[in-house]
Simulated scan of single mutants.
Amino acid sequence: MTPHAYLVDDDDAIRDSLSWLLESRGLHCLSYPSAEDFLAAWDPSLAGCLVLDIRMDGMSGPELFDILCERGSTLPVIFLTGHGDVPMAVSALKKGAFDFVEKPCNDNELVDRVIEALKLDENRRVAASDADSVNTLIARLTCREREVMELVLAGKLNKVIADELQISMRTVEVHRANLFEKMGVRTAVELAQLLAGKR
């Protein structure tokens, strides 16, 4: 399936201008005037990323994001936010959203983030296409990185991990960064999603 940037915004002008912008950079784009419309079109095989307005009539962006997470969607999500929506966007980041961009946004910055999100989705799909790929990734971890991974998955903070393994917090941060890079994830939430069903 061809990767697309899926654009969900109830403002016709923003939808049109962002669609044009993305397509001018050679990206495939599909746009939807509401979260409900996108949800009706969504299926687990969709490839690409989701550019999602936070405030819309009807279902809000975060509500759609929560539903997609419940359904196991792995599409990276970039939220479009007004200034007052930043706390809501930060909350979404903690739940695993890819990023947020404030409106009015720098066109090139937004397109660059979309390209990064598309690349992340492609990497995830390549990894997921091989049933043994996650095990292959885990096999590349050092023993210490695996120990850190287990404690990260248990929801433990770096300080607690450092205490349990009797190493410095800085060493934990290095191991954590290395294991995230090797596993192709950016957050503990993404790591847990990658390993779901493999444990």
Rank of each mutant, 00 (worst) to 15 (best):
T2C: 04
P3Q: 06
P3G: 02
A5T: 11
A5N: 03
Y6E: 03
L7W: 04
D9C: 05
D9H: 05
D11M: 10
A13I: 13
A13S: 15
I14M: 09
R15P: 01
R15I: 04
S17P: 08
L18C: 12
S19F: 01
W20G: 15
W20S: 15
E23A: 11
E23N: 10
G26E: 04
G26C: 00
C29P: 00
S31Q: 05
Y32W: 08
Y32G: 06
S34Q: 03
S34N: 01
S34H: 04
A35D: 06
D37G: 08
L39M: 07
A40S: 13
A40I: 04
W42T: 04
W42S: 02
P44V: 00
L46P: 02
A47E: 12
C49R: 06
L50M: 08
L50I: 08
D53E: 12
I54E: 06
R55D: 11
D57Y: 12
M59T: 10
S60N: 11
S60A: 11
S60Y: 10
L64K: 08
L64I: 06
L68I: 02
E70K: 13
T74M: 09
L75V: 02
P76Q: 00
I78S: 09
I78C: 08
L80A: 08
H83K: 12
G84K: 02
V86Q: 10
V86G: 05
A92M: 08
L93N: 06
K94P: 10
K95I: 07
K95D: 11
A97G: 02
F98Q: 10
D99L: 04
V101E: 07
P104E: 03
D107G: 11
D107W: 05
D107P: 11
L110Y: 01
L110T: 07
V111R: 07
D112H: 14
R113I: 10
V114A: 01
I115N: 13
I115T: 14
E116W: 03
E116P: 03
A117P: 03
K119Q: 14
D121F: 05
R125D: 00
R125G: 02
R125A: 02
R125I: 00
V126F: 00
A128H: 04
S129E: 07
D130S: 09
D130E: 15
D132I: 09
S133Q: 10
N135Q: 12
N135Y: 11
T136G: 15
I138P: 02
A139R: 13
R140H: 14
R140S: 14
L141T: 05
T142N: 03
C143G: 15
V148N: 01
M149K: 09
M149D: 00
L151A: 12
V152K: 07
V152Q: 06
V152E: 07
L153K: 14
L153D: 04
G155I: 06
N158L: 07
N158E: 13
N158F: 05
I161K: 09
A162M: 02
E164W: 05
L165M: 11
Q166R: 15
S168G: 14
M169Y: 08
V172W: 01
H175P: 01
R176S: 11
A177P: 04
N178A: 11
L179K: 06
F180Y: 14
E181T: 12
M183H: 04
G184K: 08
R186N: 09
R186E: 05
T187W: 01
T187K: 05
A188W: 02
E190A: 10
E190C: 01
L191P: 10
A192C: 07
Q193C: 09
G197Q: 07
